[in-house]
Amino acid sequence: MHELQRFVRRLSPDERVQMICDPSLVESASEVVTGDGGRPVPVDRFDELLAETIGRSERSQWPKESVSDAWLAPHLHNLLRLTRAQASDRATWEWLAVRAAPYVRWRWQDKGGVVAEDRWRGPVHKQALARLWWGAEMFRDGADYRPVQQAFRNQDLPNSLLHRPIVRCRPLALGLVQSLLSDDQPPTSRRINDLARAVNLATAGSPPEAETGFYRDDLGGYRRWVADGAAPVEDWDAGVPGPSVPALPEQSRTAGLAIADRGRQYAERARSAR
């Protein structure tokens, strides 16, 4: 079993290149990440997923690199079972990015073959793998990853929303996705950012949790799902289930959409007044 690790110091770009070329150097700069009960976190399923992803890229499975996100995000979340605390550690994501360097380069290198530093070690809406995992975590509806796929079909949506505190409220996060994608035309990054700012103002002094019924995730069910570990994938084209936890109650879902729609109205008024 291969175990999840994290770097114990921040790597320079030159060090990172050396470790990608010679993986034996990684051990000297990393330590094992442990889960509940001090158990290591396996990454064998993660390795299988990245091998499948690279294989699909070589077969030109997707018309462009960004199209892969809607497929990869649910699979990554399902096969790399982390607690939110573990997934908040940039040093862990940097270690995973070095391990998945062929994917990171395929997905993010520019025409000059350069990958921006924040794709290796950056915030959740930038880092190559963290953005996929956190997008799946924030936009899933219980075990249902379909909202995640919808969100990642428009790159501006996760890029503009993932780092914002408002999406930590799951009913509002799902309401934002539903509201933004309700039009015939895909929303632009400007409209998404305008909506996020408007919702921030609309919820000032009245946190969205209060309006959505103080919905709380089933943390016990989620931690059991993490502890169970991922099963081998028999069919990569079949849909994958998320954590074995309940979907949003209808009252919370409706309230989250109402907040998003209210913010959208404010944003549209502000645009028309410019």
Rank of each mutant, 00 (worst) to 15 (best):
residue 87 A to S: 13
residue 87 A to C: 08
residue 88 S to F: 03
residue 89 D to R: 10
residue 89 D to C: 09
residue 90 R to H: 11
residue 91 A to D: 15
residue 91 A to P: 00
residue 92 T to H: 02
residue 92 T to S: 07
residue 93 W to E: 02
residue 93 W to F: 10
residue 93 W to K: 02
residue 94 E to I: 00
residue 94 E to R: 02
residue 98 V to P: 08
residue 99 R to I: 09
residue 99 R to K: 15
residue 101 A to Y: 10
residue 102 P to H: 10
residue 102 P to L: 12
residue 103 Y to W: 15
residue 103 Y to I: 09
residue 104 V to R: 01
residue 104 V to H: 02
residue 104 V to Q: 03
residue 106 W to N: 03
residue 107 R to T: 00
residue 107 R to C: 01
residue 108 W to E: 15
residue 108 W to N: 14
residue 109 Q to F: 00
residue 110 D to R: 00
residue 111 K to A: 15
residue 112 G to T: 00
residue 115 V to I: 06
residue 115 V to C: 03
residue 117 E to K: 11
residue 117 E to I: 01
residue 120 W to H: 04
residue 121 R to D: 13
residue 123 P to F: 05
residue 123 P to K: 05
residue 123 P to H: 06
residue 124 V to W: 07
residue 124 V to N: 14
residue 125 H to M: 04
residue 125 H to G: 03
residue 125 H to L: 00
residue 125 H to Q: 15
residue 126 K to W: 04
residue 128 A to D: 07
residue 128 A to S: 14
residue 129 L to H: 13
residue 130 A to Y: 08
residue 131 R to Q: 15
residue 132 L to H: 11
residue 132 L to C: 09
residue 133 W to H: 02
residue 134 W to E: 04
residue 135 G to P: 07
residue 135 G to I: 11
residue 136 A to H: 11
residue 136 A to T: 12
residue 136 A to P: 06
residue 136 A to Q: 10
residue 137 E to K: 10
